[in-house]
Each structure stands twice: as structure tokens, then as C-alpha cells.
Amino acid sequence: MNLRTPRTGGLALLAAVILFLPLALVNNYWYEVAILVGINAIVCVGLNLLIGYAGQISLGHAGFFGLGAYGSAVLTARYGWPPAAALAATTAGVALLALLVGRPILKLKGHYLAMATLGLGVIISIVVVTEDRLTGGPDGMSVPAFTLFGLALAGERLWYWIVGGVLLAAVWIALNLIESPAGRALRALHGSEVGAQVSGIDATRAKLGIFVISAVFASLAGSMTAHYAGFITPGKVGFFHSIELVTMVVFGGMASTFGAVIGAATLTLLPQLLTVLKEYEMVVFGAVLIATMVFLPRGFLPSLVFILKKKQK
């Protein structure tokens, strides 16, 4: 194993961070923050495959996150499904929905795609709020703990390891995908769609595939959040959460998997550290988005790598 390649080296570094971070997590509050970072990072790693690598925008991924959360919640709380079955059914359902909706939506480009995905997110969020008999409406609903072989998975410490493990797996999968024929096809589409097509790439299929995969990442993160927190509200389904996610990806660095993780970590921590700013969370995110576009158009991690490489020369 060569630790000097970004693949294995980066994965090892991430594993080490996850492994040793608990030494710094002084109380349950910080465990909660770390779990939140991990959850957001999982969504962002998937979203970055779509936005950063394939070059297709989505302003509706909080919708898929919400469907994952509420799918697991409703099936377990209202219908008494075993959580594992609910998780599987919800994930498959979200994948199918993304497949069906993605087909017409992904024919659109640029602003039109942004508007269509935004619309999708808004519709999902409205459905969650209005179907109050199932979802509890704006008040939210409580969710049973995830049980596996009769054992309830509960507590911040346990969930820290679960989320950490899933994040590591998500990053590994994303890195694998990028360095594969399918991943190259996505990057090629981003570089030149017509160049990709004449090379034999079915653009519609490739975009649809990565749209579904990124939706599944978001949905899984949603399901985990529901069971871990034991309670969900429509806040995480709405438009603002979609914007938060995109900002994390853009800030961390588009087309950089570890950048997406750093973006998620930074922008999840920022409001926690500057508690005075919590009221102005939206303003902070807006400002970060604008500042990134103006000063670091490649995003944080790619810019850092660029500067370090230049210094080496």
C-alpha cells in the first residue's frame, strides 16, 4: 500500500482522524457535533460526485436527505417495520425516485437544472410538512432506535463509530468511483460533453447514474440521522439545508473528495464555534459562498494543494 497517493494516504489520514478524535471530544455535546460533521460529510461526498466531478448542479439534495430520514421514521414508527428493513426499503425507494425524476430533469443544463432540482426539493419539503398524519407536520416526529439482532443502537459514542465507519466507506467508494471508467466518464462529461459523447459515453445514462448514487448517499445519511437523533423535524428537508450542503461542497473544493469532507467539517463547526452567529447562520453561509467564489474559486483544499505544489517548485 502506497501511502503517498491521495487515495490510500488520504484514507489512512481520515481513518486516523476518526480514530483519535474522541481524545478531543470532551463531552457528549462535542460527540454530537462530530456526528453532525460526519453526517454532513457523507452527503457532501456524494453531492460532490454530482456537482464537482460530473458538473451537474443540484439544489434539492436536502429533499433526498429528508426522504431518507422520514422514510425510515414513518416505516418504523407508524408501521412497525424493523429498522433494517425500513432502511433498505427507503433507500431503494429514494433510488427509484431519483431515477424517475432524474430522467427528465437531467436533460436540463445550468440554471434550468438548478431551478428544477430546487423545485424537487421544495415539493418534497412541502409534502413532508403537509402529510402531518404520517410525519407530524412542522412539529416533527420521534423515531425508534435502530435495532440490530435485538440490540438497540443508542448513545453518542456508539453512533460516533457508526457514522465514522460509514463516512470512511463513503469516501472509499467515492475515490474508487472517480478512478474508474465510470468516474472518468463523469469527469469527461464535465470537461466536454460532446467530446465525451463521441468517445462513446452515453451522457444521459452517466448523469442519471451519478444522480441516483448521490441521492442514495443523502438518503442513507438521512436515515442514520433519524435513528440516531430519535427525532426529526422538517428543518433538515428544506431549501436552506440544500444550500448549506452545496456551500460545503463549493467551499471545500469541487472535484475533491477530501475537500468535500473538509468543507462539511468547517461549515458545520463554524456556527457551533461562533455561537453568537447562530442567529445569522444563513448570512454566514451566504457570505462564505460569495467569498469562496471570489477568492478561492477552486475551493479550499484544491487551492491549498495548488499553493503547496507551487512552493515545492
Partner: peptide, 22 residues
Amino acid sequence: QVFFNMSALENVMVGRHLRERA
């Protein structure tokens, strides 16, 4: 219509797309 977001070698590898396991 080069893929400027990729390495030269990767550009050519994309050309093999149809003969790869995708």
C-alpha cells in the same frame, strides 16, 4: 474538445470507454 479537467493520459483512457468495464 479536450477534457481540460483531466490528465493527458486520462483523456486517452476516456477514448477507450467503449472497451472498458463501466
